[in-house]
């Protein structure tokens, strides 16, 4: 589950270090496919609105301006950032708390109910969230929660449960039984074992799922689109989308909004790339 440590190093490395010109060519080609749009976004976001129309689209702007970024920041960007942070933190913490409890119970418990619950979660992996948007909207409207951040947090968390539980279950199963047994011999109950044993041991898995769930919620679009409407409750992806409508053909400004909305995740990537990657391939990467 953790980042892949280079095991059985020497011989593998020798093979893997051989040159491969064809591969390198392909690799470079894809690099271009990835970088050209990203580069275009960056240079365009630095152009003035007028400069956009007559400049060579890939040239470095002759007089770069941060005006577009200021425009975006002036449009309540801070509030949307805060909303996104609240939604992400709320949903992630919620899903972590309930999933960890459930995973512990599933691994350390025996009852038929628990086995049944686990199967249900496994089945739940196949339920597409898109297909439930109409009834979720119906429920949220009936519960008078329409247009609140909680309306986004709760369903987002609910749909993250199956995978989170699955990953945590897989991880907890690897914890040797003896550790629990010896604690139990000391008279510890399940809540204490959960808190003082399972929790500290699960740290890597928890970090992994945290990042995975957080990124998914952060970038989520459909729930906020349907379940909120006012600017007060707007999250970043929705902001970027509505900003492009408001700013007609001011492409540089729209792209500046795109850059700003991605910046927090990019920063996270710069700091914790390894955890983020293992988080994203969580449960699949083995």
């Amino acid at each position: 589950m953790s980042a892949h440590s280079p095991t059985s190093h020497a011989p593998a490395a020798r093979r893997l270090r051989r040159g491969n010109p064809l591969g390198a060519l392909g690799g470079l080609l894809w690099l271009l496919v990835v970088l050209v749009p990203v580069y275009w976004v960056l240079v365009t976001s630095l152009r003035s609105r007028e400069g956009f129309f007559d400049a060579n689209p890939l040239a470095v702007p002759s007089s770069p301006t941060l005006e577009n970024y200021r425009l975006v920041l002036d449009h309540d960007f801070g509030r949307y950032l805060l909303n996104s942070a609240l939604v992400t933190a709320g949903a992630t913490l919620l899903v972590l708390a309930v999933s960890f409890l459930a995973a512990y119970a599933i691994v350390r418990g025996t009852g038929r109910l628990l086995r049944w619950t686990f199967s249900l979660f496994l089945l739940g992996l196949a339920i597409p969230l898109q297909a439930t948007i109409i009834p979720v909207y119906y429920l949220i409207a009936k519960a008078q929660m329409y247009d609140t951040l909680a309306a986004v947090i709760l369903p987002s968390a609910a749909f993250a449960i199956p995978l989170t539980v699955l990953i945590l279950v897989n991880f907890l199963r690897d914890v040797p039984d003896e550790l629990f047994e010896s604690m139990r011999a000391d008279g510890a109950g399940h809540w204490r074992m959960l808190w003082s044993l399972a929790l500290p041991l699960s740290r890597p898995a928890l970090i992994t799922v945290t990042l995975y769930d957080a990124l998914n919620v952060w970038n989520g679009f459909l729930f906020p689109l349907i379940l909120t409407q006012s600017p007060d409750q707007r999250v970043l992806p929705l902001f970027v989308w509505s900003f492009q409508g408001e700013f007609t053909i001011n492409v540089p400004a729209v792209l500046a909004a795109v850059v700003l909305s991605t910046l927090p995740v990019l920063a996270l990537y710069a700091v914790g790339r390894r955890q983020l990657i293992s988080g994203l391939t969580a449960g699949f990467g083995k």
Binding site: L101, A102, G109, T110, G111, G124, V136, H190
Partner: peptide, 26 residues
């Protein structure tokens, strides 16, 4: 014996409310 079912209940409840109940409603 094993861990109590109640520990799995919050996850089950949340998941049911926003994923299973909606399936019935839809």
């Amino acid at each position: 014996g094993g861990a109590p079912f109640v520990m799995a209940a919050p996850a089950l409840a949340l998941f049911s409310l926003f994923a299973l109940v909606p399936m019935a409603i839809v």
